[in-house]
Design a protein around this nucleic acid. Structure first.
Lengths: 159, 159
DNA sequence: GCTAATCTTGACTTAAAAGTAAGGTATGAT
DNA sequence: ATCATACCTTACTTTTAAGTCAAGATTAGC
């Protein structure tokens, strides 16, 4: 249960774009440089984000990438879902198929758990927008802890 | 962000053991057969669980595996953590290290998000015990939806 | 004590994810 | 028009996770 490299780098590039002013854009080379990944790799990630409609691009000399919507209207749940949709779509088309991939079909108590885990993650991430991730680590951390779902976890102990 | 094969199969084997009566045990071959995996693979998974103290084993002719504690005292959070500790331990020792592995060290708004995602998952799973996963799919699903953290998610829409 | 059943452990093989390379296509400036 | 810039797309290589193999060690029953 971990965040994949593709998910994380995709998120990082989006945060960069979220910090831009209106009318500005960033090239692949710029984003790759700041994240320490290759231009080719950044190109792949941004292409996925572009295909999903989260970013738009402009070709040519003054080209680059920019967000397709305001950062305050892009939720992390959507980003995470988009970034690993690639590998999923090869094996199965629907969301039910995702389960059939790793869960065998006989009746058992585990299927609802796997499903619930994914729902919990998606639901938690649907409360955070890209706009809330722009800024210093300290500020973002403070912001996150004011969001309801993140705060409630403090009541319970982790076993 | 998905449940790995290792996590899922480990969980499945534990559910099998949780369904045993006192004094009973299961061999690798029995568990492997029921889950549709090879005996060798089951051996690897059970060894991890054994090393972590979740199961105990008995060698020899009448040997097999059984839970080290009552199923009602084993939380899913612990299982998930144990099952992918292997890959983590090779690169870094502490939990901080897990983050340094995939997050570069400069100040940014993403580190707390990655950390929070893991915390949310752990906290949610710490409310479910192995004992609650024994039974038919329908019953387990009903049980899960009565647990507080799973129920609260229904209020919000998934974006 | 011998044998058969079973867990233990490390090395190896295979499959999947991540990342790279290269050629193609569109755009803007001169 | 031509050239330089930068995005687009497919195929390939590398790396990592998953799964397998085989030899060793332990126990129960005869």
């Amino acid at each position: 249960m971990k965040v994949s490299a593709q998910e994380e780098y995709g998120l990082r590039c989006l945060v960069q774009l979220a910090g831009l002013k209106d009318g500005e854009s960033l090239t692949l080379a710029q984003m790759a440089g700041r994240e320490g990944i290759s231009v080719a790799n950044a190109g792949k990630l941004l292409w996925i984000l572009s295909k999903a409609g989260l970013v738009q691009s402009l070709r040519g000399t003054k080209g680059g990438y920019y967000l397709a919507r305001p950062a305050s209207e892009i939720y992390l749940s959507e980003i995470i879902r988009v970034m690993d949709e690639e590998e999923i779509s090869g094996h199965c088309k629907s969301y039910t198929g995702v389960l059939d991939e790793c869960v065998h079909t006989s009746d058992c108590g585990i299927r609802p758990v796997i499903m619930s885990i994914h729902e919990i993650v998606q639901e938690s991430l649907s409360k955070i927008t890209l706009a809330q991730l722009v800024g210093s680590e300290k500020n973002v951390d403070a912001t996150l802890h004011q969001i309801q779902s993140f705060q409630s976890r403090r009541d319970a102990e982790a076993h």
